[in-house]
C-alpha cells in the first residue's frame, strides 16, 4: 500500500512531467528510438522475406535468422557495440542501443514475411501463373495481400520486443524510459523504479494493441459476412506465436 501510494505520487508529481528529464521527454525518446529501430529493421527484413518466400531461394537464411532471433542476447550486443561506437557522433549510448534494437527487430519480421508469402497455397499461385499473371502480379495481387496479416503480426512482435528492450539503453548511458529505472536503482528510489517500469509496460501494451488493431484492418476479407474469429485466413504455421513466447 505504501509503495503503491508512493508510486502514484511519483507518477502524478508535476515536476516529473516537465523539464529535459521529465516523463514526456523520456517517453518521446523511447518511442522515437523504438520506431527508428523497427522501421530500419523492417526496411531490410521485409524485402528479404518477400524475396525468399516468393522465390523459395535461400530459405535457410530466413529459418536461421528466425531461430537466432529468439536467442539474441540484446544485453550482450549492447556491451559489444558500446566500446567501438564511443567515437561515433550522437548522444552517448545512442548507437549501441540502436544497433541492439535494430538487430532485435529483424528476425520476427523476416520470419513472418517469409512464412506469410511462402504459405500462400501453392495451387492458387500456380493457377494464377497459369492464367498469365506476371511474377510481380502474383506477388502484389495474391501473395502479399494474403501474407499481410502475418507480416503485420511480425511487425507487432518486433515493435513490442523493441519497446521492451529499449529500456536497456539507459544502462549504456542513453535516455528513454529506462533512465527512471536505472537512475532509481543507483539512488535507491523504489517508487521511481516501479513508476518507470509501469510506463514501459504501458507503452508495450499500447504498441501491442495498436498493431493488433492494424492487423484486423489489413486482413483481407475471405467471407462476405463477418464471422466470429474470421480474421484468421492464413494456412501455414505462424512463427509469430513461437517468437512471441520466447521474448
Amino acid at each position: 500500500m505504501d509503495l503503491f501510494g508512493a508510486v502514484w505520487t511519483w507518477l502524478t508529481a508535476a515536476e516529473n512531467w516537465s523539464g529535459s528529464a521529465g516523463i514526456p521527454v523520456r517517453l518521446w525518446e523511447h518511442i522515437q528510438m523504438s520506431a527508428q529501430a523497427t522501421i530500419l529493421g523492417a526496411l531490410i527484413a521485409f524485402p528479404a522475406g518477400v524475396y525468399i518466400g516468393h522465390k523459395r531461394r535461400f530459405e535457410f537464411v530466413a529459418v536461421t535468422v528466425g531461430n537466432f532471433g529468439r536467442a539474441l542476447p540484446s544485453f550482450g550486443i549492447l556491451g559489444l557495440t558500446y566500446t567501438f561506437t564511443l567515437n561515433w557522433p550522437g548522444n552517448i549510448g545512442f548507437w549501441p542501443t540502436f544497433i541492439a534494437l535494430f538487430l532485435l527487430a529483424i528476425p520476427p519480421i523476416l520470419a513472418n514475411t517469409y512464412v506469410g508469402v511462402k504459405g500462400v497455397d501453392a495451387d492458387t499461385v500456380e493457377a494464377a501463373r497459369g492464367m498469365g499473371m506476371r511474377e510481380g502480379e502474383v506477388l502484389t495481387r495474391l501473395e502479399l495481400p494474403l501474407a499481410t496479416p502475418l507480416i503485420v503480426s511480425g511487425l507487432r512482435l518486433a515493435a513490442v520486443q523493441v519497446v521492451a528492450t529499449a529500456t536497456l539503453g539507459a544502462v549504456a548511458g542513453w535516455g528513454g524510459l529506462g533512465r527512471f529505472i536505472v537512475d532509481g536503482f543507483s539512488v535507491g528510489d523504489d517508487p521511481q523504479i516501479v513508476g518507470g517500469a509501469l510506463l514501459v509496460a504501458l507503452l508495450a501494451v499500447a504498441t501491442e494493441v495498436g498493431f493488433g488493431l492494424l492487423e484486423r484492418v489489413v486482413t483481407p476479407k475471405t467471407r462476405s459476412q463477418r464471422s466470429a474469429g474470421g480474421r484468421r485466413v492464413l494456412p501455414g504455421p505462424a512463427i509469430g506465436s513461437e517468437a512471441g513466447s520466447a521474448s
Binding site: T124, A127, R129, G132, L146
Partner: peptide, 22 residues
C-alpha cells in the same frame, strides 16, 4: 510466356480461386 498463357484457359483440380477475391 505471359502472353501465351493469357490466350490459354487453365483449370486445375484444386481450381485455385483467389480466396480474398469475390
Amino acid at each position: 510466356a505471359v502472353r501465351l498463357r493469357r490466350g490459354i484457359g487453365y483449370v486445375i483440380q484444386s481450381i485455385g480461386l483467389l480466396p480474398h477475391r469475390t
